[in-house]
Amino acid sequence: MAEENSNVKRTHNARKGPLRLITDPTAAEKKVLAAGLEIFSNPPEGEDMAFTHAVLCQVGLPRSKLDAREFMRQSGDAWVNVQAGWLDEGRGPVQQCLPYGPMPRLALAWLSTYSVRHKTQEIPVGDSAAEFLRLMGMDSQGARYKTLRQQMHALAACRLQLGFKGRTFNGQPVEQFDAWISNRDERQRPLWPGLMVLSDGYHKSLQESAVPLDNRALHILKGSALGLDIYAWLAHRLHRIDGRPVILHWKPLREQFGQEYTGKEADKDFKKKFLPQLRKVLEVYPKAKVRQVNGGLMLMASPPPIPYKV
């Protein structure tokens, strides 16, 4: 095992620049390195392909819990507005929070993937919460059920607006959802809805604007909303660079990914959180060409995570 880990580290270090270099990796970092080597060595096939909406690759959902009932984020020509909603949980309307963290990102990616693959609005979400967690690449620890219930309800209830260059999607991504009613024993099969129905508008918008991602990378990054956001952003951005590299400074990057950082040291504080996640992302997106430069990042034209169809 020691020799295998050493080979993984040597292989990666031999093909990567300073941003990607991981010395004396921890157990968690070894998993990232191994996954990156797998992705580098074996092109995606079958279930490896996932999809998410193009606008959500540029501006993501909240990454942490907010007391507000509305969330707005803009990056360039793209913007997202999320409004918390209400859901009937069996005894009338219950106010839901804004969806936040990795869970709704993974759920939306899984729902979007099924919708794009099968060209349908009706998404079977498994026979149980445990099965849906497995489909998203998560284990079925007890705490996961509470988070899953909260975030699925928040996602199903929210109103979502996506805008880009004069076109706006208005509505709820989820048209129909049978609430996970009981909170006493979330593992019981009858409590799981089994089916979600995407709204007409979101389904149509998704078919026109889906961005392919590597599901293996999503599974490795599943513990970090920021990591998932960076990966989706690079997957959408790098292959669209035409010609000269693009330089992005820390301030616009913070405005896109870290609006919660404020004060005199805002850019510095954001950078400390951003760079470790970027390093993980670059491990599982081996063909991404990103370099840290003075004052920011240099993005260079790179192949997408999922190769173009020949």
Results as ranks from 00 to 15, higher is better:
Glu29Ala: 13
Leu56Gln: 03
Val80Lys: 00
Ser224Asp: 10
Ile22Thr: 01
Phe132Asn: 07
Ser112Trp: 03
Pro286Glu: 09
Ile247Ser: 11
Lys30Gln: 14
His118Arg: 13
Gly137Asn: 11
Gln74Met: 09
Leu162Trp: 06
Thr120Trp: 03
Ala156Phe: 06
Leu299Tyr: 09
Arg291Ser: 15
His236Lys: 08
Lys272Gly: 12
Ala225Gln: 05
Ala78Cys: 10
Glu38Met: 11
Tyr231Ser: 01
Arg20Met: 12
Ala109Glu: 09
Gly85His: 10
Gln188Tyr: 08
Arg69Tyr: 07
Ser199Gly: 05
Leu155Ile: 02
Gln141Glu: 11
His12Asn: 07
Lys222Tyr: 04
Gly201Tyr: 05
Cys158Ser: 08
Ala78Trp: 04
Ala130Gly: 06
Lys309Ala: 13
Asp77Ile: 09
Lys273Arg: 13
Met103Arg: 01
Asp139Ser: 14
Val293Glu: 15
Val290Arg: 08
Gln176Arg: 15
Ala217Phe: 10
Leu226Lys: 00
Thr26Trp: 11
Leu106Trp: 03
Thr113Cys: 06
Leu191Arg: 09
Asn294Trp: 04
Glu45Ile: 00
Arg69Ala: 14
Val8His: 00
Tyr285Cys: 06
Gly295Arg: 06
Ile306Phe: 13
Gly101Asp: 04
Lys271Gln: 15
Asp48His: 13
Phe169Tyr: 07
Leu37Trp: 02
Lys30Ala: 07
Ile306Cys: 03
Phe270Ile: 02
Arg240Cys: 13
Met72Gly: 01
Tyr114Met: 07
Asn170Asp: 08
Asp200Tyr: 12
Ala157Pro: 00
Arg189His: 10
Arg63Asp: 11
Glu38Ile: 14
Lys289Gly: 00
Pro303Gln: 03
Arg216Lys: 13
Leu61Asp: 01
Trp180Phe: 10
Asn294His: 15
Trp86Ala: 13
Thr26Ile: 12
Val293Asn: 08
Pro99Ser: 02
Glu4Tyr: 10
Ser75Leu: 04
Leu148Ile: 13
Tyr285Ser: 04
Gly46His: 05
